[in-house]
Design a protein around this nucleic acid. Structure first.
Lengths: 109, 109
DNA sequence: CCGTATCCTTTCTGATACTG
DNA sequence: CAGTATCAGAAAGGATACGG
């Protein structure tokens, strides 16, 4: 049936999972705490938790626990995650060049 | 709540829609007919139809009708669609560098 | 603060059958 | 060939409540 590269398919499966792109974008600006990300993204805590676990399992996101007081937990990108920066960057460029606001907001009041 | 660029969000929404990446990849190799794409992708005709309509609506894919005999219909990328090539290319590169087969196939028989 | 478990609703997918 | 309609099961998403 299909003859796509399995690695490409797998990569696409991870990256194109809903919200993953936005989460990666958040983390490209540096490590963040759960609540910071939750506030910065249009998704619920449950979904954010799901996706972070997925990305951690894929080795893209690292979970760092700082045993300070109070305990601080931060999420950051691994090398594998940072390697996705060009992808995100290209999407930003494309969005800048080709996406217009009319498509985003309702046509008329 | 969130302060993401709406254009970036919109772009991510389109691109990260399931199967869209694979469809774009197919079309980067040149115009294709419906049945060709169906054979080359791991999705049903209904889904392919859905996605092509979506991509056509977004101005990413063009539907070309050739009034030959028999009538031939081909799908190809618009300029907007071709502009996504770097994105797909980067994902391919990333997949090549970071995705291993163990993650794709079942560990043992 | 940092999540996870549960419940319930919405959306998505795929198989099948059917038109032009 | 090139799709569309329908239908049922699977998956995803949100709200809420609760544990560490």
């Amino acid at each position: 049936m299909n003859d796509l590269c399995p690695r490409f398919e797998k990569a696409m499966e991870i990256i194109s999972k809903r919200w993953v792109g936005l989460i990666l974008f958040e983390l490209l600006n540096g490590a963040k705490r759960f609540s910071e990300m939750e506030a910065g993204l249009p998704i619920s805590g449950r979904l954010l938790s799901d996706r972070l676990k997925l990305l951690e399992k894929e080795g893209i996101v690292k979970r760092n626990i700082y045993s300070e007081f109070p305990v601080r937990i931060e999420y950051s990108l691994s090398e594998k995650g940072k390697a996705l920066e060009p992808v995100i960057k290209d999407i930003q460029d494309w969005a800048h060049d080709w996406i217009t606001m009319q498509e985003v907001t309702e046509p008329k009041a």
